[in-house]
């Protein structure tokens, strides 16, 4: 085994992870989650047009490959005169994708809160919006943490696709060093190991968050 290569390639890859993979994941997830909330609320609004749009959006996002979505935005849009740089392209594609999946999670979580909670909010004089914010969403957040964590972990791994639109992140570093050194097995396994460690850290973060949000329910 080429320990020297392992050592010299580790830092560029890790830094690709820390300056590429992680910020890309966090930014896309944050934007995607905000969008998802809008889509979820449209979906349960009871307004046929809004909920129709939301349903259509979710269907398209979930029914098409992420790689194709990424390519449409980065390689497709320039042909209609809209050229977007790699980083923003990646963030747009990943956010829109996360929104499609997270919208369904949030919708189910909101609907899982008992109707009596809405009524209790209303009887103390809260509007729908205030009840949603103060009563419903905090409870929906608790049930949606596990599925949303899975979405986030998938996203972290999926950001490796951004290497195909020239974003410098963990996997692109690995590809470049591999091409140069011709040590494909070693470098791709090393990349896999780093992704794995990232995901392990995230999973333990998920458990901590679940514990925190679950402090008010019986165990």
């Amino acid at each position: 085994m080429d320990w020297e290569l392992l050592r010299t390639s580790f830092w560029p890859m890790l830094s690709g992870g820390l300056t590429g993979t992680i910020p890309l994941s966090i930014a896309s997830f944050a934007i995607g989650l905000a969008l998802a909330l809008v889509v979820a609320l449209m979906r349960i609004s009871g307004q046929p047009v809004l909920s129709g749009i939301a349903r259509f959006y979710v269907s398209v996002i979930r029914g098409t490959p992420l790689l194709v979505q990424l390519f449409v935005i980065f390689y497709g849009l320039p042909s209609i005169g809209l050229t977007i740089d790699p980083w923003p392209s990646a963030i747009i594609a990943f956010s829109l994708n996360v929104a499609g999946y997270a919208a369904e999670i949030l919708r189910a979580a909101i609907l899982s809160v008992p109707k009596g909670q809405w009524e209790a909010g209303h009887t103390i004089g809260m509007s729908r919006a205030l009840t949603l914010r103060r009563v419903i969403l905090p409870q929906a957040a608790r049930v949606s943490v596990p599925p949303l964590s899975n979405t986030f972990i998938s996203l972290v791994k999926d950001t490796s696709l951004a290497s195909l639109i020239l974003v410098t992140e963990l996997f692109r570093e690995a590809q470049q060093i591999a091409a140069f050194s011709q040590q494909f097995m070693l470098l791709y396994l090393e990349a896999a190991a780093i992704y794995w460690v990232f995901c392990l850290v995230l999973s333990s973060g998920q458990s901590a968050l679940e514990k925190r949000l679950g402090r008010y329910v019986a165990h």
Binding site: G116, Q117, A120, H122, T123, V135, Q139, Y216, V217
Partner: peptide, 18 residues
């Protein structure tokens, strides 16, 4: 109407996260 009355529910409906 809600400004004048308040309801006590059969199932309490307390906010569990508070």
């Amino acid at each position: 109407l809600r400004d004048r009355s308040a309801m006590v529910f059969q199932g309490y409906n307390l906010f569990p996260h508070m």
